[in-house]
Design a binder for these strands. Structure first.
Lengths: 187, 187
DNA sequence: AATTAAGTGGACACGGTGTCCGTTTAAGAC
DNA sequence: GTCTTAAACGGACACCGTGTCCACTTAATT
């Protein structure tokens, strides 16, 4: 994945950076974490940081990557209702539940990974989108392209954060989305 | 609204600022418009700008205000299906259509008005939220609090922009939301 | 041990922020 | 019309983050 050979000092610094960044994203408002800050916390020069990552968002993405890939694998090859086999409505509900759970643990990173609209340009969004479109098609829903973005919108980290701050529990949020899934894709 | 008497020069500058800002928000990426830039374009000192507005978002909000209030009036007292009298599903669909139309004309400003999560703190969001909750209650939908935010999420300006850039027309977006409205609130 | 290419980190120029305060100017009193 | 005063103005200032550049260091190779 990362061009074959990595020098020992480079690997050491990459680890330091990721570890330091993980702490920062968790401790402060993830949107205010700066490159300078990460460099300082990691004990690394600014230039070194920029060599690998263009901005804080890409560092958060690197930290998030593993978790997202894991969920993507389950969607493609896992057990129903998350994986193939269950009716579309159930699969959508399961997807919502999984994403909610992922957010519960990693909102910091998702917030840090998204500077404004970055959300849609990231590879992950394309994956979720394709998945939802497939479910809509399987249910014969008209205009799946437009609907898919609408159905993914509630998963924006800002929405999740806002709901939690309003006093809603993760469970309540997931229940709301389950209802949504089953009304949109009855079955 | 603004403490009764405003001095002539103050009023003149306020007008200059709003006019200049309107142009800037329309011409460039609204999220990159800076206070310095607005001050320069308006031919006004930085201090003068800060006297009234704390940041570019508040200026965009000021420009947007009139349009939002107008829609709010229609929701409360206008003709059905936007105003009271129609079944909840139809009213939600009409609300979606109206918001989509408003975005079509003023995405620039909505994008400029929202720095990250500001969306939820703004007064307008509370209004939309209360409206949607009322519709959900009227239809006897369980857990309206959690669902309301989910149903409003597709109206985030970033989502709209993304959809337009993907090639969807405003009409297709509105159709998708209409379908969503009627599936969530059948009637 | 010598070579070399990758990696490092700090300095630099730039641009935006928000505040502070000496100066200007409109509005009301007489 | 002048005077007074408080509001409004605008530029300077100190600060912080950005992204680049390049002289230096260090790991890997022969």
């Amino acid at each position: 994945m990362t061009g074959r050979k990595e020098r020992a000092d480079a690997a050491r610094n990459r680890a330091k950076v990721l570890a330091a960044a993980a702490v920062l994203f968790a401790d402060k408002d993830p949107r205010t974490v700066t490159m300078e800050e990460i460099a300082r916390a990691a004990g690394v020069g600014r230039g070194t940081l920029y060599r690998r990552y263009p901005d804080p968002a890409s560092i958060a993405s690197a930290l998030l990557d593993e978790h997202e890939r894991s969920l993507q694998r389950e969607l493609l090859q896992g057990e129903p209702p998350l994986g193939p086999g269950a009716p579309p409505g159930d699969r959508l509900a399961a997807f919502y539940a999984a994403m909610t759970a992922l957010m519960e643990r990693h909102v910091h990173l998702v917030l840090g990974a998204e500077t404004g609209r970055t959300r849609f340009d990231a590879g992950a969004y394309g994956f979720w989108r394709a998945h939802v479109i497939a479910l809509l098609r399987a249910a014969g829903t008209p205009g799946p392209d437009a609907l898919a973005d609408a159905l993914l919108a509630p998963l924006a980290p800002e929405v999740f954060t806002h709901q939690r701050e309003r006093g809603l529990t993760t469970g309540q949020i997931a229940e709301g989305l389950t209802l949504l899934a089953h009304r949109v894709l009855p079955g």
